[in-house]
Write a protein that binds this DNA or RNA. Structure first.
Length: 322
DNA sequence: ATGGTTTTTACTGCGTC
DNA sequence: GACGCGGTAAAAACCAT
């Protein structure tokens, strides 16, 4: 019975409504979507409708309109346009696979061997490089999200360790860096006992909730991380302070939760819901009343759930404390 | 896919300020 | 009359099989 509880709620679910606006400094005049600047192409584009608001800040591509090849050579900037499709934007060295020299002549066998060795080494450096870049970007993201969520240093630390492991075990191919980075952070926060709900995580990530959940499950499984379902108590302080409630309420809420725990009432229920209900119940018991809708607001849980849970909590309390 | 459980949505009725 | 609260039914989401 407790067993199923542990497996349920490896991921939380909550309400959908998020204030996704926070990051968008500017808003699209056309559809109200958020604007994203693409420094690569020198444009500012709306995420939703694709409207290009500003363009040609800097154009990395070749200049157009060359009338003959000499002019083209003069005008074109050095190198091919960069692309995001490759980790190094196509700027690294590539060695052709054909055993031909620059004139198309075949190579001697000695030369062929040499080329083969060069290819091997070049590939090694290139991939090591790619991992490094990958890591840099991911760690940056983790840092950004962690501070947006007010997560402490040690959580970022664990998150990056998890990410590194994922990278080492080649879990990345087929998955986005963002997604894995987000999942790592989610896992780390839970492991550290300062959980953030999936929705909170989603609100600061650039990745969809579904993908985060999916990737999270995958990473946890592949790395066999052992992560217990979140402890409802760990949400209490945050909710309490968001609602400007006293220490007393917080203590009381904890008490209720511990009681419930002993009686196994909380099996299979959402930890967030439990925590929210406990805070609400505690606020009643200590005459520092907050409304259900206020609690549901900060906890991102429906009022109905709060009602159901807090009845159960009080019942459990009564049976011990008549 | 399916089934069982939990959560959410939406609506209604009741009491109070 | 708005607000807080409670309850219910149906829908949706979720997990495990």
């Amino acid at each position: 019975m407790t067993d199923t509880t542990i497996r349920r709620y490896t991921s939380e679910r909550e309400t959908e409504d998020q204030q996704a606006e926070e990051e968008a400094a500017v808003v699209c005049p056309e559809c109200g979507g958020s604007l994203v600047s693409d420094s690569e192409r020198g444009e500012t584009v709306c995420e939703d409708c694709g409207l290009v608001v500003e363009e040609d800040e800097i154009d990395p591509g070749p200049e157009w309109r060359a009338f003959d090849s000499t002019e083209k050579d003069k005008k074109s900037r050095v190198g091919a346009p960069t692309t995001n499709m490759m980790h190094d934007k196509g700027l690294s060295t590539n060695i052709g696979w054909q055993d031909k020299d620059a004139y198309g002549n075949s190579l001697s066998s000695r030369q062929r061997e040499k080329m083969q060795r060069l290819r091997t080494w070049n590939e090694r450096f290139r991939t090591r490089d790619s991992k490094e870049r990958n890591l840099k970007q991911a760690l940056g993201e983790i840092d950004r999200m962690a501070s947006a969520l007010g997560l402490p240093e040690n959580v970022r630390e664990t998150a990056s360790v998890i990410y590194r492991r994922a990278l080492d075990e080649n879990l990345l191919p087929g998955r986005s860096i963002e997604g894995v980075a987000t999942s790592s952070l989610y896992a780390a926060a839970r492991q550290a006992g300062t959980p953030r709900s999936l929705d909170e995580i989603t609100s600061v990530s650039r990745v969809e909730k579904d993908e985060i959940a999916r990737t999270y499950r995958y990473v946890v499984r592949e790395l066999s991380l052992e992560i217990q379902p979140a402890d409802p108590e760990s949400y209490v302080p945050r909710f309490a302070s968001d609602l400007d409630l006293s220490e007393e309420v917080e203590r009381r809420a904890r008490q209720l939760l511990q009681n419930a725990k002993e009686q196994g009432v909380h099996s299979g229920k959402s930890p967030v819901g439990l925590a929210a209900a406990a805070v609400y119940a505690a606020s009643l018991l200590t005459n520092e009343k907050v409304t259900q809708s206020e609690v549901s607001e900060v906890a991102n849980i429906s009022e109905v759930t709060i009602r159901n849970r807090y009845h159960e909590l009080l019942e459990a309390e009564d049976s011990v404390h008549p």
